[in-house]
């Protein structure tokens, strides 16, 4: 699969897909989208990058081990649930900052962080699986 054309286009394709995945993640609360879908898109992006250019560039580009990303995601989700403890509400109760946080029209909420956590878990785990399998392919 390592053809020149695919190899040259893959980094750009991957960055576009990752950008798109973040977009899908953030619009998820009001439009179709969300953490699961966004995460899957990003994971496919990395899988494509891995197929096109080999696994080591992907690992370098990610900087962290994919499972570490996944762990960070799970932690983010859990912590976003713990925020509600500060407001004496049950675990994972959604909390919203007042409208127009820092002068920008933006729904800043614990739910958003929860969804980001979901995104990171899916990206991390599935990228890790895909890369591990691709690595076996290349050795």
């Amino acid at each position: 699969m390592r053809t020149v054309i695919f190899g040259s286009i893959a980094p750009y394709l991957t960055s576009l897909m990752v950008l798109f995945s973040v977009f899908v993640l953030l619009r998820g609360h009001n439009e179709p989208g969300g953490g699961f879908i966004g995460g899957l898109i990003a994971a496919s992006a990395f899988a494509i990058y891995g197929i096109a250019c080999g696994v080591s560039p992907v690992r370098r580009a990610l900087r962290f081990h994919p499972m570490a990303i996944s762990g960070a995601g799970l932690l983010t989700s859990a912590l976003s649930g713990l925020v509600s403890l500060g407001y004496a509400t049950p675990f994972l109760t959604g909390l919203w900052a007042p409208e127009g946080f820092m002068g920008i029209e933006f729904a800043f909420s614990s739910v958003l962080f929860f969804d980001i956590g979901v995104y990171l878990v899916v990206v991390g785990s599935i990228t890790s699986i895909a890369l591990a399998l691709e690595e076996r392919e290349s050795d």
């Binding site: 009001n30 989208g33 969300g34 953490g35 649930g81 994972l92 959604g94 739910v111």
Partner: peptide, 18 residues
């Protein structure tokens, strides 16, 4: 505060499941 009901169920109503 969410218009995508599926997503709201996932991240808010049924957050612990997720």
């Amino acid at each position: 505060h969410g218009r995508n009901i599926v997503n709201v169920i996932l991240v808010d109503f049924r957050g612990v499941d997720t």
